[in-house]
């Protein structure tokens, strides 16, 4: 490990430790925002793991998330919660593999389109199954888990995602993804199994998103498909990740915190304007910060250093 990596690790551990102290503030509002931020951090970081190097915009976050939530909601009466978490993670990875097998061998557009309607399609299927298998639409998730617990769980998952991201960055898979992101033809002619690499990475991303859904299920106590498969979630995650920047592992984090707070403020004061804000955010990102805030800062910094010499 180089000294720079050690330094980054130390800083990361300190920040992580500080973040873990938040529930001791005892302020319910802060904890609630903390849960939301932690949720978006995990989702957008894992989104960027896949979409950063491949430039494939995945709009499937809500589908994975909803899958995890529904699995917990359906099974909580019969199966221990921990087992449900495992099932959710596996289900998320399997669904990602299926979506990947259908689309990632082809060009990126097919992938975007497929993921665009995926959450809505699964919501339809789940509702239909519930109606026809005699279940009621709404399900209760009653556990002893408090917001504090959920917060710590999400924080631990965030740590796990950062570790995985760091490990992938140093692995052959990470190197393969950088090559694929540059030129897919060259990648194939270098002997890289491009489809398999992309599918593997998408599975990691899908697994994490499903797990987040499963972890958050106890927060709602009452769950029906319309809540679990929230259509806007996918877009919010894309905006936050791109706003921060996807080139660095911690890039999305920079986008998540201000944007979550902005969304909270908008939802509290102008509840019907969330979608307008999302639209404007998309446009601002494309035209003003195409490489994210982090990318923008790094560019300016590089220019500054060049100018200084």
């Amino acid at each position: 490990m180089t000294s720079r990596e050690t330094r980054t690790l130390v800083i990361a551990v300190i920040l992580f430790g500080l973040a873990a102290l938040l529930p001791f503030s005892g302020n319910g509002y802060y904890i609630s925002i903390g849960v939301t931020i932690a949720m978006y951090v995990v989702l957008s970081t894992s989104w960027a793991l896949f979409s950063g190097p491949t430039h494939y915009i995945s709009l499937a976050t809500a589908a994975f998330y909803g899958l995890g939530t529904m699995i917990v909601a359906t099974g909580i009466e019969m199966v221990p919660y921990v087992v449900l978490l495992l099932i959710s993670a596996v289900a998320g990875a399997v669904m990602a593999a299926l979506v990947g097998l259908a689309t990632l061998r082809l060009s990126g557009v097919y992938f975007v389109i497929f993921t665009l309607g995926l959450a809505e399609m699964i919501r339809q299927l789940v509702s239909w199954l519930q109606n026809n298998l005699g279940g009621s639409r709404g399900l209760y998730v009653l556990t002893d888990l408090t917001e504090e617990h959920i917060y710590w769980e999400l924080l631990a998952l965030a740590g796990f995602v950062f570790l995985i991201g760091w490990w992938i960055g140093r692995s052959r898979l990470g190197f393969a993804m950088r090559i694929i992101g540059n030129d897919e033809t060259v990648a194939a002619h270098c002997g890289i199994n491009t489809a398999r690499s992309k599918i593997l990475l998408f599975m990691v991303s899908g697994m994490v998103a499903a797990l987040v859904g499963a972890l958050l299920a106890p927060r709602w106590t009452y769950i029906e498909p319309n809540i679990a498969f929230s259509p806007l979630l996918s877009f919010e995650v894309v905006i936050m990740a791109l706003l921060g920047g996807t080139k660095r592992l911690w890039g999305p984090l920079v986008g998540v915190i201000p944007f979550t707070i902005l969304l909270e403020v908008i939802e509290a004061n102008y509840p019907s304007q969330t979608i307008l804000v999302l639209g404007i955010a998309f446009l601002l990102i494309v035209y003003l910060v195409p490489h994210g805030v982090v990318g923008r800062l790094e560019q300016s910094f590089a220019k500054f250093r060049k100018g200084g010499n």
Partner: peptide
């Protein structure tokens, strides 16, 4: 065809690794 965001040595490593 090169890999523009990689350095020279990384371009060559692409061949060596995969």
């Amino acid at each position: 065809k090169m890999l523009p965001t990689l350095t020279v040595i990384e371009n060559v490593m692409a061949g060596a690794v995969f």
